[in-house]
Design a protein around this nucleic acid. Structure first.
Lengths: 99, 99
DNA sequence: TAATTTTGACCAAATTTAGACAAGTACAAA
DNA sequence: TTTGTACTTGTCTAAATTTGGTCAAAATTA
């Protein structure tokens, strides 16, 4: 599940057109379409608006947003999976150290 | 193991001073110091030079380089680990689809 | 055919990258 | 104590890249 998919899902459940949600977010409908298809990242601050509109936990939105960013970096990389795992190790090691 | 740590290790095993390796790479010693301490990323093309100099597989260098990039993004993030895992899922899903 | 969504081309503004350079530290050795 | 060597760190910068879109045209769906 990507952020774009999530947004589309929430929007449709709420019975909104792209133009309507776009208006709520203060962006154009073309841009929202790209966001829903994960072709453009949403501004991070706008997650708050989604949280308010759809009552979805901000943590979930943040993770999905961040994941999209990571994915856009490793998408075309041979070593994508290895790199992700190495990064994971580093995160775990850091949290150990700071515990 | 980070890229910086790896470079430092390789350099020391080869008995080189920072200034010497820096010269080989065409950068200043101050910059190399930061690279070894993961405070600055190395230019990606320079991995080839490391590969030639130290006979270390380019794939390993690439993974470490990419991992550093990822880590620098999630380093201060609450949802670092979750996001990494979500991104991993996306990578796996994609490779399934393209198989 | 009409409404909705997607796509491609383009853009200014903000941010990041890839360093230089000088000053500061650490630690031997003289 | 001074000096030398190696390394680290802070500040600064131009150039490249990314961000965050717009708008019109094309495609899709109802």
């Amino acid at each position: 599940m990507t952020l774009g998919q999530k947004i589309k899902e929430l929007r449709e459940q709420a019975g909104l057109k792209q133009r309507e949600l776009a208006y709520q977010l203060g962006i154009g409908e073309g841009f929202l379409s790209k966001v829903e298809n994960d072709q453009k990242p949403l501004k991070r601050e706008d997650l708050t608006k989604l949280n308010e509109l759809f009552k979805i936990p901000i943590e979930e939105l943040e993770s999905l947003w961040l994941a999209n960013k990571l994915y856009s970096i490793v998408r075309d990389e041979e070593s994508a999976l290895t790199a992700l795992k190495v990064a994971e190790e580093q995160v775990k090691y850091k949290s150990l150290k700071n515990a």
